[in-house]
């Protein structure tokens, strides 16, 4: 174990291995952040659809979740990156015109966003269904529409309930970005592997990556615990006093 290897120059490249890993980290974080935006909004819409009174909306939501949760993530990456452009000539014409890195980046964001949306939707659904049925009925009794009942009565509490599992999903999303190495995106895991292959210092490379992933996941955990405390309704469920999950 000799961490000084991180300060060695990358062969025929620019900068040190540390800089190479840091550039990978930028991709990891930006993919995770953008994928989270897709996952959060799409997942919320799907999760709500699955708790409405509309039979077809529920079926649509369920079908989406089954499809995206049951196919391994690495297979989904392969489908988005290799199969889709191979099947649809218009998509292929478009991706060939793109900068290769942009194409990989967009693919990773879309793939992880849609995959995580299925998981978020499951959390949102369970959050809404965890509320007593009386809340929904009280909303309707007061003359609120279904949309208004969700907006003002159900979702504000449901989102608070599901902050702990959402924290896990964020941490999973960050770790899942590593699968994007399979389409050649130069994120943190790709850089780690590359450093191992070219220096044979796997121990140092993977130790650096492990520490980085742990630190990011811990920061995400702390930020979510903070949000949980700040948004807690006094006297209502846990309120995040313990912080951790």
């Amino acid at each position: 174990m000799n961490p000084a290897i991180l300060l060695d120059q990358v062969p025929d490249g620019d900068g040190t291995w540390l800089a190479s890993l840091a550039s990978g980290l930028q991709y990891t974080l930006s993919v995770a952040a953008l994928a989270w935006i897709i996952a959060f909004f799409l997942g919320s819409v799907l999760g709500v659809l699955r708790t409405t009174d509309n039979k077809w909306a529920v079926r649509l939501g369920n079908a989406y979740v089954e499809l995206f949760r049951n196919v391994p993530l690495i297979v989904q990456f392969f489908v988005w990156y290799f199969v889709l452009p191979g099947l649809v000539p218009a998509v292929k014409a478009w991706v060939v015109s793109l900068e290769p890195t942009t194409h990989q980046f967009v693919t990773a964001v879309v793939c992880l966003g849609l995959f995580t949306a299925a998981r978020i939707s499951e959390q949102v659904r369970s959050g809404v269904q965890a509320l007593p049925r009386g809340q929904r009925m009280a909303g309707y009794a007061m003359g609120l529409t279904q949309a208004q009942t969700y907006r003002y009565v159900l979702l504000p509490v449901a989102y608070r309930i599901i902050i702990p599992p959402m924290t896990s999903e964020i941490m999973n999303l960050i770790k899942n970005t590593a699968v994007a190495f399979s389409i050649g995106l130069v994120e943190l895991f790709f850089r780690t592997r590359e450093m191992g292959e070219l220096t044979f210092r796997y121990f140092e490379a993977f130790a650096a990556a492990t520490i980085t992933y742990v630190v990011i996941a811990m920061i995400a955990n702390r930020v979510m615990a903070f949000i949980e405390r700040r948004t807690a309704i006094p006297g209502f469920i846990s309120g995040g006093a313990g912080g951790g999950h």
């Binding site: 025929d12 190495f181 790709f190 592997r193 590359e194 292959e197 070219l198």
Partner: peptide, 8 residues
């Protein structure tokens, strides 16, 4: 990725 072709 990871082959000697990359730095070359």
């Amino acid at each position: 990725s990871g082959t000697t072709a990359v730095p070359l």
